[in-house]
Design a protein around this nucleic acid. Structure first.
Lengths: 147, 147
DNA sequence: CACAATTAAATTGTCAACAATTTAATTGTA
DNA sequence: TACAATTAAATTGTTGACAATTTAATTGTG
């Protein structure tokens, strides 16, 4: 019961579950982030800043795999919410340095409950999560730009 | 060497690899789809139509997990490219019926090589792919709207 | 039958993703 | 030192994603 078009069926492709699942998980974050006026992308940007304290747009883009076309407007929004500051580096004015404001820093403690709440929505065992992580990583390696 | 903020690190979350990997895979499709003037979302829409021949927007949205706000403009674009037709159902004019045009149907054979080419970018064994599929499916179940 | 409730698609508005281009600062080199 | 090449961020333009609302058709019920 198989024909040559089977490979063109949605359910036979890995790409679609990946795409749908990613959207589904992102959507799940919304209610937890909304009280802080953050979108998912803004949230992961803040996650990097909670680790780094200070970073330029280029490095931030490498961590998040986003370019300046996405980040510039997003960072302006985070600045408007007073979570971050944006200033040119003194030694090289091409670099825009992103720093947490006190408000942004304070948010970190509030946000501790987000991953906790999210993990309740993730019906995977510890081992399954680790395996999923490994497989995504491997897939990522293979799909990123090659020489 | 762990503190209470570890859970707020990007690399300790499943959500980020999922999000990044999905974007990476989608990006990989671009060069294969560009010759046919299709985006990834337009491509998966065509995949449903190659299976169904005829479907209304609501059902299409359920298959693709997209709403009319996303689909309406996308379907108008596919219509403009002459891959699909859009007509109201005679028995219930609320329903918009999407059908393949001959051009859209013909595209199916051309597109057979897309999954083939893509699979070369997917560095997973058969078993790994199956396991990834299973895990994504399980995660999907858990993250979709609950009662 | 009338009209409220429901349903399907379209519309509106906001944010994201990303290619391609532009602007401005810095670096390398003839 | 001039000036070409490179680099970082911003800008422009297109497409998607989705919440919320609107429009129009159909269904259910008093």
């Amino acid at each position: 019961m198989s024909d040559k078009y089977d490979c063109l069926k949605l359910e036979n492709q890995l790409c679609f579950p990946l795409y749908a699942c990613s959207k589904s998980v992102t959507r799940r974050y919304r209610p937890f982030l909304e009280p802080y006026d953050l979108t998912y992308t803004q949230y992961i940007t803040m996650m990097v800043l909670w680790e780094e304290k200070e970073i330029n747009v280029k490095c931030l883009g490498e961590r998040l795999k986003l370019d300046s076309g996405t980040l510039t407007p997003l960072l302006k929004k985070l600045e408007a919410k007073n979570y971050i500051s944006r200033h040119r580096a003194l030694n090289d004015e091409r670099n825009l340095i992103i720093k947490l404001t006190p408000d942004g820093e304070a948010l970190k403690d509030e946000m501790l409950k987000v991953p906790e709440q999210m993990s309740k929505c993730m019906p995977l065992t510890e081992e399954e999560a680790a395996e999923l992580y490994r497989l995504l990583d491997k897939l990522m390696e293979g799909t990123k730009e090659e020489a």
